[in-house]
Design a protein around this nucleic acid. Structure first.
Lengths: 207, 207
DNA sequence: GAACCCCTCACCCATTTGGGGGAGGTGCGG
DNA sequence: CCGCACCTCCCCCAAATGGGTGAGGGGTTC
């Protein structure tokens, strides 16, 4: 089985390499420090499972995941993250991830997860399952995606712009901007710009 | 020389361990996954240099750094981070760090940094020096710290509260809350609550 | 073609925010 | 003791925000 490690932190790449170096039937065929490098590698070499960091420079892990599972659905993607918020897990699964690991995971768990993913199963870290299920069953799931315009507007809000400035910046009327802001509030289930920014930053919807 | 690794991600701890396992004159005497564990270890065993993740569960790396350099000034602290914002670096140095590494660092850089720190020098990742200097020389340095009250207020703002609610929550008058908000704006050099939340989240001043 | 989402804009209205000013109190370090 | 930072509160005022309702057009999907 061919494993590709994608993470922009060299210590993590090397750490995983060492941890998995003596696992039977598993070959680490490469590593990449960016989404671009990952796609380049996949295009030239067969890969069965990708171990993908959820947060990277430039294109984030989630964006990369989206393209990856759209273009190469046969490849199993195991997301790795330092975040244990259910929102991340949910979004990753929606975008086609086969598994979700925390960076606090030990060797055995990583190996288990890779095996599970290579056999088409889904592996989720134990500690994440419960809140995830509660999230699914329970509350009116907070959205995990904004429309492009909404995202733009929220980004500008996070940068300190007020509606008038945003309208000018985007070439819209102020009324339209207000409509988008309301849309953001609804989707994120918040009631102020500040809270919206907090939530969106946590969910990686904006930078 | 005795090195202690502190990071809540097991892959990072193990990665560093493997990377440094064959370095002459360097002994990795232990690792810890939390600030509490770190202090417990230091209390019972001599440590020369601590490799400390800037972000951890519970007490953050920066909090831990503050206590560490206050109580054990003879210990060299090398901060490790995924963040390359100058704000982090500045704050870490203010709090007594001897060096600052990115997690994208390779083996050689880590070894260099540890040696530098053990000899009392300060090691900063090349790419971080320039913006840091620009920051020092240039613009009216954005503050890196809020007063406790300001921090509380901003935290509530990030959670969606408005001034009246904050006042009730903290048992203050609305006027007082407004004063704190103005203080936050000044310190962070921003002009809206939303921007303040964005900046503070990035600087880890609030959760 | 009907349902649905996204984009765009408008009007109304109460409340909140942002930005000045000032002013007392505590407590700590030089 | 004096400054300084922090905490607390008050006044004023213009501007921005949040919360409705409504409405037309474009595109996709079923």
């Amino acid at each position: 089985m061919n494993l590709l490690i994608v993470d922009d932190h060299k210590v993590v790449r090397d750490g995983v390499r060492f941890m998995l170096s003596d696992v039977e039937g598993l070959e680490i065929v490469g590593d990449a420090s960016s989404a671009e490098a990952m796609f380049a590698f996949i295009a030239s070499s067969p890969v069965d499972v990708v171990l993908l960091d959820i947060r990277m420079d430039g294109m984030t892990g989630l964006d990369a995941l989206e393209h990856l599972s759209a273009e190469f659905p046969q490849i199993g993607v195991l997301m790795m993250s330092m975040h244990d918020q259910p929102g991340y897990v949910r979004r990753a699964l929606e975008l086609g991830a086969s598994g979700y690991l925390l960076k606090s995971a030990g060797r055995d768990e990583i190996v288990d997860a890779i095996h599970a993913v290579s056999e088409g199963e889904t592996y989720i870290h134990r500690a994440l399952m419960e809140p995830l299920l509660a999230d699914v069953v329970g509350t009116p799931q907070r959205a995990t995606k904004l429309s492009p315009r909404e995202q733009q507007v929220l980004q500008l809000i996070a940068n300190g712009s007020e509606n008038k400035q945003i309208a000018r910046e985007l070439g819209l009327s102020e009324a339209t901007v207000k409509t988008y802001v309301r849309g953001v509030f609804e989707r994120l289930d918040v009631s102020s710009r500040a809270e919206a920014v907090a939530v969106a930053l946590r969910l990686d919807l904006i930078e």
